[in-house]
Every structure is written in structure tokens, then in C-alpha cells.
Amino acid sequence: MSLEQLSKFVEDGESDSARELAETLLVNGANPIEMIEMLTRTMAHVGELFAKLDIFLPEIMMAGDALGGVVKVLGPYLEKAGGRQCKGKVVIGVVKGDLHEIGKNIVKLLLETSGFVVKDLGYDVDPLTFVKEAETMGADFIASSSLMTTTMPRQKEIIEILKDKGIRDKFKVVIGGAPTSQLWADKIGADLYCYDAKSAPERMVSILETSH
């Protein structure tokens, strides 16, 4: 059994097998940093397959669950080895009045599997809750999704609250969702418009690097 086999288990969403193999590999002295790096590449590959719809949402979600299980096993080993690099902290949710969360869930999964720490606020989230949770978490990003045109204004309200509290510069505001656009992001002063889930992690890393 090898790292390649572990990668295959994760890709196929075989959670129990992946977790058991990860435990065996670690007991036998495998390098946890190498393991997490490989599995990050695995999930990037799964993300590519999903982006082309060579696989569908249930499959990528199962792969994400399998990776989650392995990361739990890896946790103590990674800590000893200096920890997994956190690419950024994100609070994410669907805005108030909107109950559609499929897009948000896909972005959340891709962020987590790319090395972001994500707090999921769910759906129908008040703008002030986004802000308070971001402050509590010490987040780098506030990410909000809206599927309906009449709930899009709630994304603007998040930015208005940040301005009113004098903390606009503390967070990068990311927006997404079917009716949103770069035009809307520009209009409300968002830092990033996510036009798809796949590119979100890379673009968020980039925006954070640019600002530092």
C-alpha cells in the first residue's frame, strides 16, 4: 500500500479505506507533509474533473469527505512536523433571504481541500452575522453567495456594515452566485468576484499575496 493508493481512495471517495491506510502509512513512518501535499494535488485533480463534469457533485463531495477523514488522522502528525500551511481564513455563507446553497457548498469544499480554514455560516445569513463571525474568527475573507437578484443587495450591506464599523480594510470581501457579475462586484466595491468555484482558491491566494 502506498501514497498512490491513498490518493486513489480519496479520489474514489472511499473514506474508511483512506482513513485506515493513512493510519497505517503514518505508523510506518510516512512523511505527513508529503502526504498532505499529495492529497492536495489529488483534490485539485478531482476539482478539474468536476469542473469539466467528468464527475458530478456527489463524487467530489465524497472525495472531500474522504480527505477530511484523512486530515483528521494526519492532524497530530502535521502539528509535530510544523503544521499544515493555512492559505487563509474564510467565513462563507448565503445571504439573508436566500436558501440556495449548492454553489456555496462547492466553493467551501474546494477552499478547504486547498488549505483554507473555512467557517460555514449556512444560508439565510444576516449581513451583520457575516461581519461578527469574521471578526471572531480573525478571518481574511468574507465570502457571500446569492442566487437571487433580490437577495444580491445583502452582499452590498455586508460592505456597508464594514465601512460603518470602520473595519472595511480588515477583510477581503468575495462575492459569487448565479446573478452576480464583475459589474456588480465593482458597483458594490467587493474585492473579488468569483465567476466559478474552481478558480476561487487560486484567485483568493493571489489577492491575499498582492495585499501583503
Binding site: 439573508k96 433571504g97 436566500d98 437571487m148 437578484t149 433580490t150 437577495t151 443587495p153 445583502r154
Partner: peptide, 21 residues
């Protein structure tokens, strides 16, 4: 077609502007 604004006000779901819109 769907309105996004009503008499110049942005329509917000669940709020007064939605009823007007």
C-alpha cells in the same frame, strides 16, 4: 420580466421594497 428596482429603490427580498416592486 423581473424588477430589481422600484421607483429607484433597490428591491430587497423580504423587505418593503419587494412588496412595492
Amino acid at each position: 420580466p423581473i424588477l430589481e428596482e422600484t421607483f429607484g429603490h433597490l428591491i430587497e427580498s423580504g423587505g418593503p421594497s419587494e412588496i412595492s416592486g
